[in-house]
Amino acid sequence: MKNIRPKPLILALLVLAGVAALAWFFLGERAAPPAATVRPALTVATVQPQRESLPTTLAANGNIMAWQEASVGAEAAGLRLTQVRANVGDRVRQGQVLAVLSGDTVQADLAQSRAALAEAEAAAAEAANNAQRARTLQGTGALSASQINQYLTAEQTARARVEAARAQLQAQRVRLAQTTVNAPDSGIISSRTATVGAVVAPGTELFRLIRQGRLEWRAEVTSSELGRLTVGTRALVTAASGARLEGRVRMIGPTVDPQTRAALVYVDVKPLPGMAASARAGMFARGEFDLGAAPALTVPQQSVVVRDGFSYVYRVNPDNRVTQVKVETGRIAGDRVAIVQGLAPDARIVAAGAGFLNDGDLVRVTDQAATPAVAPGSAARASVSAASAAR
């Protein structure tokens, strides 16, 4: 049997096929397009939460009212107003004359009372002389006992008439003094009904006075928050006019409204130093009670993003990708906001520009101070412009 040997042509074809396969493998691998490079979405700076002592406040609404109002009226009856010397808004002193009533009738009555007193005193003097003579003759029998008693009684009656005349004269003097209406206390005139020429009835209110010009803020505080306040608690108040006032709690109302479940807290207020006194009684005002300070975990306000009614921050992971973290915010102090829950104290979060990020975005982190985030393309253009300017 003959040995079978491969022909040279077959061997050559096999070698060519192997070379072609190797060439396709290497050339195809080189021709494959490179994988796409993921570019960072933003260049950001990171910060860590800081534990700070933040002021604790309690917000409330209320009205600014007069501390006390005094009603100023006329005591004299049936007299005509001749002068009105004060108007609404005037600041007056205690005892200052606010209005003057006609005193002609009172002056005449006063003169008549003086004359009546003089007449009573003359009659009393005559009665006293007669009584003295009767006492002298009492032991002689010249006068009967009844006659002597009549003289003694007439003396006492005359003395009583003198006292009555003096009282009447004093009443007329008081009535004359009532022809001037005086301020019962220092303060500000808040209303005026006095009109020149009007005949004033007794007890008619002519003016209303804010005593000492003092105002108070009557804050409405819910019963659940009432226990956090004490007498002397400091408050800062902003009136509807923009006026800023400060004060302290004078009194906490003893009752709670059953409808609103709120109590009134009375705060004596005065304008802050350097502020115009534009607050007026009757104005609506908002305020905050200073309840001290408490430690809190805080982040910059720019780090917090509000979406769909919830607050989020973006935590930067070791691979420079961000994770959207839902947090609960609390008090705000300056440019920082307290984080109540949802964030670890050692977390690294985006300092600014978080509103341009989405969960899972890749970022470029810079160690510089927190600045507004910029896109990488913008940063590159800025670098090129700076280099061109330097050349």
Rank of each mutant, 00 (worst) to 15 (best):
T82D: 08
R85P: 00
T105N: 03
V88W: 07
L110Y: 12
A66S: 15
E75V: 11
V106W: 01
V72W: 06
V72Q: 11
A66M: 07
R80Q: 12
L101V: 07
Q83E: 15
A99K: 14
L101Y: 06
W67L: 10
G95M: 04
L81N: 10
G73F: 09
A111K: 09
R93I: 01
A99L: 09
E75W: 09
R85T: 06
V72C: 07
W67K: 13
E69N: 13
Q94E: 14
T82S: 06
L98H: 13
A76M: 13
M65V: 14
Q96M: 00
E75G: 12
L81R: 11
Q96G: 01
Q68P: 01
V97K: 12
L101N: 08
T105I: 07
I64T: 15
V97S: 08
V100F: 05
L101I: 11
G103Y: 01
A70P: 00
V84K: 10
R91P: 02
A74H: 09
R85N: 12
W67D: 14
V88H: 11
R85W: 00
A76H: 08
A77V: 06
R80I: 06
A77H: 02
A70W: 04
L110A: 13
V92K: 04
G103R: 13
G73V: 02
D90M: 00
V92T: 05
D90P: 07
E69Y: 07
A108V: 03
G73R: 10
Q94A: 12
Q112N: 12
Q107F: 02
Q112A: 04
D109Y: 00
L81I: 15
G89R: 14
S113L: 03
G103K: 09
A108L: 08
Q107G: 04
S71Q: 10
A77N: 13
R80V: 06
G78E: 13
G89W: 02
V84S: 05
Q112H: 02
D90Q: 05
A99Q: 10
A74R: 07
D109N: 10
A99E: 14
G78A: 15
R85V: 00
L101P: 02
V84Q: 12
